[in-house]
Design a protein around this nucleic acid. Sequence first.
DNA 1: GCAAGTCATGACATCGGTGTCATGACATCG
DNA 2: CGATGTCATGACACCGATGTCATGACTTGC
Lengths: 362, 362
Amino acid sequence: MATIYDVARAAGVSAKTVSRVLNSDAPVKTATRERVEAAIAALGFVPSTAARMMRSNRSGLIGLITGAISQTTDQPASHGLPDLVIVQAIQRGIASSGMTVMIADTGGQSDQVAPLVQTFLEHRVQGLIYAADFHQRVALPLVPKGFPLVLANCFDDAGTPSIVPDDRRGQHMLVERLLRAGHRRIGYLTLGRQMVATQLRTEGYRSALDEAGIAYDPALVVLAYIDDAKLGSKLLWDAIDRLMSLPEPPTVLCCGNDAMAMRVYGILRSRGLRVPQDISVAGFDDHRIIAETLYPPLTTVELPYAAIGARAAEQLLSLIESGPDRNADRMPTLVAGPVIWRESVLSRTPIVEFQNQGRERL
Amino acid sequence: MATIYDVARAAGVSAKTVSRVLNSDAPVKTATRERVEAAIAALGFVPSTAARMMRSNRSGLIGLITGAISQTTDQPASHGLPDLVIVQAIQRGIASSGMTVMIADTGGQSDQVAPLVQTFLEHRVQGLIYAADFHQRVALPLVPKGFPLVLANCFDDAGTPSIVPDDRRGQHMLVERLLRAGHRRIGYLTLGRQMVATQLRTEGYRSALDEAGIAYDPALVVLAYIDDAKLGSKLLWDAIDRLMSLPEPPTVLCCGNDAMAMRVYGILRSRGLRVPQDISVAGFDDHRIIAETLYPPLTTVELPYAAIGARAAEQLLSLIESGPDRNADRMPTLVAGPVIWRESVLSRTPIVEFQNQGRERL
DNA sequence: GCAAGTCATGACATCGGTGTCATGACATCG
DNA sequence: CGATGTCATGACACCGATGTCATGACTTGC
C-alpha cells in the first residue's frame, strides 16, 4: 500500500505538504494541491489511521458489546440478541460524528466480556457501549475508572450512565388509553415476574387505574409466561381460562409482549371469541412484523429501541467530549415509546358503558 | 495511558524485554517476567494496536457493511436490516480467528457505501463483508482489485465470492415433503415476482412437482405480495379467494414467508377454515418468533442465516490467508436450510388418498 | 582451561503519519 | 530601498510498538 512518502515523491513535494492537503489544516497553493491530489488518485493512496493515531492519540473508534453479560444466570435464557435496531441506531449516531463502531458479541458467555474489553482498549476505543437484548440489570467489570461507558437497554448498580425503555410509563399510557376507550376490566397477562420490565409495567398498570379511580383487582393480573414452549402454552391457556371465567371477565387482555398477543389471538379464536368484537387484545414492543401483520393489526406500545440507541450514542459522545463530570444523574435515562393504536382494541364509548350498567342494575 | 517504556522503566528492563513478555516470542527469565508483569498490572498498561500495526502491517480488523447498497432502486423498499443473526454469526466466525469486526450501516443510502469503504481502508481492514437484508443482486464499487471481499445473502455479476440461501432447494424440499405427506394440490402464494428468492423458489416448486410426475398447474401459483399494507391485504384476500374457488382447490398453501403465513392464518379463520384440519399452511424463513408462536406452529423452511454468516466469515478468512487465487468458483455458494415440520400441515397419507379416489370413482 | 555455543537482554532503526520550527520567496509599508 | 510580515513549503523529531543485530554472562565439550 502506498504511503504518504510515495505520494510526496510522485508529486514532487514533501510529505508534510501531502499531509496538509489531506487535512486542509494549512494553505496549499492550488497548483501544488492539484499535483498532490493527482498523485493520491494515481497511487490509490489511503492514509493509515494507525499512523495518524500514534500522534493524535484519537482512534476515532467506539466499542460496542452485545449479548449476555449479566452475572445473574437466573434470567430467562433468551436468544441473547439485542434488536438490530439498537445496534443500527448506535452505529448511526456514532457515525454522524465521524467515528467508527467496532462490534463484538459475547455469544452468550459473560466470561467473554473481559477479553473483548481488552481488545477494544488495545484498539484505543474512545468509549464503550453495552447493549442488552432485554431490559435488565447487569454488572460490567474491568473498565478503567472514568472511561466513557454507556449502557443501552440495561443498567447497573454503580450509577453508570444508562438508557432504558420507560416500561412503567409505557404500560401506564396504554392502560390510560384503554380506559379512555371505555374499558374498565383490563386483564394483564404478564411475562416472568423476575423481569425488570414486568415489575415496572405492572406498576404502570396500577398507577393508571389509580389515577382513574378504579380499584386494582389482583385477579385480573396473571403470570402467563415461562421459558418452556410446552409448559408455557399450557400456562397461557390456563391463564386465559382463569380470566374469562371470572364473574366479571375482562373486556381487554394486555399481553406481556406482541409474541404472546399472537398466541392469545389463536387461543381466543379456538374458544370461538372474535378479536376485537368479543374481546380486545393489546401487546407490548411494537414488534412490527407481528403487530402490523396480525389480523386484526395489534394495538401495542412501542419499545423505542431506535431512540434508545440514538440516545446512547449521543450520551457517549458527550461523555467523550466533556469528560465524566457533567451532571452525573446516576439515574438511568428513561425513554418512553408511544402507544400504537390499531384495530385489535374495540372502542366501547363510556355512553354505551353507562347504558349497559344501567340495564344491569335494573 | 501508560506505554511500553513506562513499563520498562518501572520494571527496570528495556522496552524490548517488555515486548518479549507480551508476545512470548523469546525466552525471558522467570524473575524478569514476573517483574514486568507486575509493572504491567500496576500501571494498567494495555499495548497499542496502532503502534503494533505500524510494524506488522496487520490490523486484525474486518469491515462489515450492512444495509442498502444495490444501485437498483426498484427493489421492494424493505427496512434495510439484515437479520441480526447474520451479523452475529459473522462476528463470531471472525472473532474465533482473533480478529475484530468493524461495523457500518449505510442507513439505506447506497451513496454512503463509498465513504464507509474508505474509512475501513484507512483502518487497514484485512477484508470486507457486505451483508444484505434479503437475497438480492448488488453492485459493490470502489474496492481495490484483489481485496478480500465476500458477499453474504447477496451476489453480484463480477464473480465476487458470495454466500446465499439455496432458495430453489429449500422450496423443492418443502414441496417434496408436502407430497410425501399426501398433498397433491399445492397452492403457492408468492412474494414479489422481481425478487430473486421468488424466482428461485418457484423453480424449486416446479422441479419437486416434476420429479413426482405431477403436472404444474399455473392456476395454483399466485402473486400475493406488494409493498403496501392496504393494497397488499386486499391482494392476499383475493389470491386466497381465487385459489379456494378453483374446481380442485389446494389442500395446502405455501406462503412466500412466515409473516405472510401469519396473515393467511387470520384470513382462513375469518372464512371459517381451520388450520390444518380444513387446509394446511406452510411458510418460509423459519422466523422463529412467528413460526413457533403461531397456533398451530408453522411448518416452514429455515433461512439459514447463521450458517450463511459463518460460511461468509470462513470464506473471507481463507481469502485473507491464501490470497484470491484458490479455486475461483465464480458461482455463489448455496446454503440450504432444512424443512422445519410443525403442526400447520396435515398428513394425508397416500392410503387415505387412494381410498378417497376409489370411492369417488364408484 | 579455553573456544564455541546458548541464553537473556539491550541499543537502535523503523513503520506512516503529524506537530514544531525553520526557511526562502514575495508583498507591503514607511 | 530596506525592514517587516505573510505565505507556501520543507527538515526533523516523535508517537509506541517490534525486528535486527549486538553483547555480556554462563554452560558445555575436548
